[in-house]
Every structure is written in structure tokens, then in C-alpha cells.
């Protein structure tokens, strides 16, 4: 598997990472090497094998739909980079 510069740019966008142009080729080469390692899977016949998503084959637990957590907005927002009036601030999205 060989990824080129434009593949890498697409992946970086999906991952929301600003990769500097001078690093693109290096990352493309590293990712290509990792995908070569991963390609060893291709030799295995997996017809009829169930995918395993979870090691213990457990089902998701459910609980009654009651509020159990206290309101901790202040302590959670105390560690945020930018807030105002109980809201998280980001650059303007809608003009």
C-alpha cells in the first residue's frame, strides 16, 4: 500500500489535523509502511468468521432513565480555554 501526498492530505482532513506541507511526505511514507504491516491480514481466509467487537461478548447494560449526576457545569467549564455566560466559545460559525 503506497499513499501519496494527496491521499495523506485527505486523511489528515478526515482526522482534523493540520499537517505542515514539509511533513506530508514523511507521514505518507510512515503510514504506507504501517499499512504494509497490516496487509499481512490479506492472506487469511475469514469466510464465515464472525467479527469480534468486544472480548467478553457482553451486552450493553441498561439503567433506568433517571438523572443521577449533579450539575457540575462550573467545575467543568473552569478548565475550558474560553467560556462566557456558561457557554463554550468558538470562532463564529454563522454570519
Amino acid at each position: 500500500m503506497s499513499l501519496d501526498r494527496s491521499d495523506l492530505e485527505k486523511i489528515a482532513h478526515l482526522a482534523r489535523l493540520a499537517i505542515a506541507p514539509e511533513q506530508t511526505e514523511r507521514y505518507a511514507a510512515d503510514l504506507s509502511n504501517i499499512l504494509d504491516l497490516v496487509a499481512r491480514m490479506d492472506a487469511v481466509d475469514t469466510a464465515g468468521v464472525e467479527p469480534m467487537a468486544h472480548p467478553l461478548h457482553m451486552t450493553q447494560r441498561l439503567r433506568p432513565d433517571n438523572a443521577t449526576e449533579p450539575d457540575r457545569r462550573e467545575s467543568f467549564q473552569a478548565i475550558a480555554p474560553l467560556t462566557e455566560g456558561g457557554l463554550y466559545l468558538v470562532p463564529k460559525v454563522i454570519e
Partner: peptide
């Protein structure tokens, strides 16, 4: 090709 395949081989390993 990747994630589902890997989960199947994961089953074989287990």
C-alpha cells in the same frame, strides 16, 4: 477490508 477483516481475525486469535 480493514476494520471488519481485523475483527474477524481477532476472533480467530481468541
Amino acid at each position: 477490508a480493514y476494520y471488519l477483516k481485523a475483527q474477524k481475525i481477532r476472533h480467530l486469535i481468541a
